[in-house]
Nucleic acid binder design. Structure first.
Length: 309
DNA sequence: AAGAGTCAAGTCACC
DNA sequence: GGTGACTTGACTCTT
């Protein structure tokens, strides 16, 4: 693993700052939303966005140039448009500030997003994905897979192939900016989608494939890790972001579910000679990466914080 | 202040 | 058929 080949990122939460109450997923239950409405949603969203700026700057100061934004940054976002929020001017200004920073930001919208779904499920999915894309628009970021909006197919509906085709057809219903950012990830359960399965979506709609090493290990299909990696790699028009984590069951707790992620990182990442960004999905977040960098894990301290190029 | 119970959304696996 | 998991525990009520 060469230093320049891997930029390390992490997802949604910075544990160091969270201890000081800096976090980006303030929200509320339905009852509270019905009582307090978008006025309170706006307050929380503004705090979330301001804290995102703090986290982004912490990342830059600490050599992290890849970070996943929480999908919960705007509570109840499906119920309003961002421009309706009373604090929209401040929110937009803060998002613009974030967008000016030299960091690669991505999102991973929730499992409720079903682009192979139908009816209201599909409608709600499009609404949610479009709002995630709008966040990047407000940041002033040129639409591309550099700022990926990554989802799973998430369901077979009794017919895998038909669902892949339906997913690809529904991609046409998305805005140009969203379509330019959308990516699709391989699943961890047999019966759902391997990298090889997802090639159908790529061929029909041009949506790149995010390779998740851990998911592949649980659901490899007929491909080796290298084959799946290179298949996914070939679908990208910018430097890919791939996901990595170790197995909690194998490394930390034999009673854990096989799909559970470990707290820490134990294994080296093989990028097969390619330059990629790696999103580490370890429960200990940035601390897991810092631990590798410190050299105390026995792993090569080769996780660069530098942006490619 | 802190612990317990609760919590939008879709689908699947497991109990 | 209810529950947990998923990219991420946080929110709210009660004590």
């Amino acid at each position: 693993m060469e230093n320049s080949l891997v930029n390390a990122g992490y997802a949604c939460i910075n544990l160091t700052l969270q201890a000081n109450k800096v976090f980006t997923n303030r929200g509320m239950i339905k009852k509270t939303y019905l009582q307090r409405g978008i006025t309170y949603a706006s307050e929380l969203a503004l705090k979330n966005v301001q804290d995102l700026l703090t986290i982004v700057d912490w990342n830059l100061a600490n050599g992290f140039r890849v970070f996943r934004i929480s999908s919960d940054i705007f509570p109840w976002a499906s119920e309003y448009s961002l421009s309706q929020l009373p604090d929209f001017a401040d929110i937009r200004a803060t998002l613009e500030e974030i967008g000016s920073r030299p960091i690669r930001l991505t999102t991973h919208p929730g499992p409720f997003n079903k682009l192979a779904g139908e009816g209201t499920v599909l409608d709600n999915t499009i609404k949610d994905l479009e709002y995630q894309s709008e966040i990047f628009d407000l940041m002033g970021l040129t639409p591309s897979h550099w700022n990926k909006i990554n989802i799973h197919v998430g369901g077979t509906y009794g017919d895998k192939q038909a669902s892949l085709v339906r997913f690809a057809e529904n991609v046409r219903r998305l805005s140009d900016n969203l379509r330019a950012r959308l990516t699709v990830e391989n699943d961890d359960r047999p019966g759902l989608y391997t990298v090889a399965d997802l090639v159908t979506i790529y061929e029909l709609s041009g949506v790149p494939i995010v390779f998740d090493y851990f998911h592949h290990s649980l659901n490899p299909g007929q491909q080796t890790e290298e084959e799946a990696f290179l298949t996914a790699y070939s679908t990208w028009d910018v430097r890919p972001v791939f996901h990595f984590s170790d197995s909690r069951k194998d490394r930390e707790d034999p009673t854990a579910r096989r799909e559970a992620h470990a707290d820490w990182i134990y294994s080296p990442v093989n990028t097969y000679g390619k330059a990629v960004d790696i999103m580490f999905e370890s429960k200990m977040k940035e601390l897991a990466i810092l631990k590798i960098r410190s050299g105390s894990t026995g792993l090569p301290a080769t996780l660069s914080g530098q942006v490619a190029g």
